[in-house]
Write a protein that binds this DNA or RNA. Structure first.
Lengths: 141, 141
DNA sequence: GTACCTGCAAACTGTTTGCAAATGA
DNA sequence: TCATTTGCAAACAGTTTGCAGGTAC
């Protein structure tokens, strides 16, 4: 993980800096689904002088290195990022409390391949989000 | 369609105005997947003195009335809106040229119901987007 | 008459960028 | 040394909002 980032940095003639190390550290340790704001806050606990511009730039670097995925869960709100896992997963989003769960379903993936094929598309990625009420919110809605 | 909007307006003690009528008209006639900018431009052909603030407000009204769906196809770019059709569909998006195709697949919908059930969620809506290269872009990539 | 609407411009949010100073290789 | 990075503040795009005047009912 961290090595992958180091490799990417080296390979592109970039530099390893204190700020980048801290940000990457916090990001990889994060729960997934963090916003830049979350990251800035966490990073600031370690080092309050790191600017959010640098966080934005570093996260973009992580994405370039294939270590971060950008997600736009709620329209108009800040984007969220999650470490790229080996396994793919999609999301269940509670529209009431914002809780996010993950799911994977091979049958859906396969059907989706078929859909793309029949439209002549070559899939590069996809996004499948189910929105609704989570168990807790269903009860006391 | 237009009646539904008229009903919504009446029911909520709102008023029917020239601006709203024009905007709703243009929107319902639109190809789907329009941005606010597109709408403003089209509306301006009919009446150039309608402000984009009013277009924003009216589209939100349409969404409240259940007649418009908001879509964030490309992160960071402007949101797009489409008239809520009776039939549901999802999207294939070409990441290269921005082309958008539609698809529907019952089997996927059913599997998705199952996923939600097994996580204790009640589905309110969903969003399934396949990103990749459209037929044209595959050839001359 | 009065609550609701509109246009305008200013405010806001999330994100990006230009620049001068700092820093890693 | 010197290209790359950083922090800052300003710029940006899309969207929302406060307000004073206008309009539907």
């Amino acid at each position: 993980m961290k090595q992958t980032f180091a490799q990417h940095v080296r390979k592109h003639g970039l530099k390893s800096t204190r700020q980048r190390d801290r940000i990457v550290d916090v990001f990889l340790r994060s729960s997934g689904h963090v916003s830049i704001d979350d990251l800035v806050e966490q990073v600031h606990r370690v080092d309050p002088r790191i600017s959010s511009a640098t966080v934005y730039r570093t996260v973009k670097l992580l994405a370039d290195a294939g270590l971060a995925d950008k997600r736009q869960f709620v329209d108009g709100l800040a984007a969220r990022y999650e470490p790229t896992g080996a396994e793919h997963h999609d999301h269940l989003i509670c529209t009431r409390c914002g809780r996010i769960d993950e799911f994977e379903n091979e049958a859906i993936e396969r059907l989706q391949e078929e859909v793309a094929r029949s439209h002549g598309y070559r899939i590069l990625s996809h996004r499948h989000e189910i929105r609704g009420l989570c168990p807790a919110c269903r009860e006391n809605f």
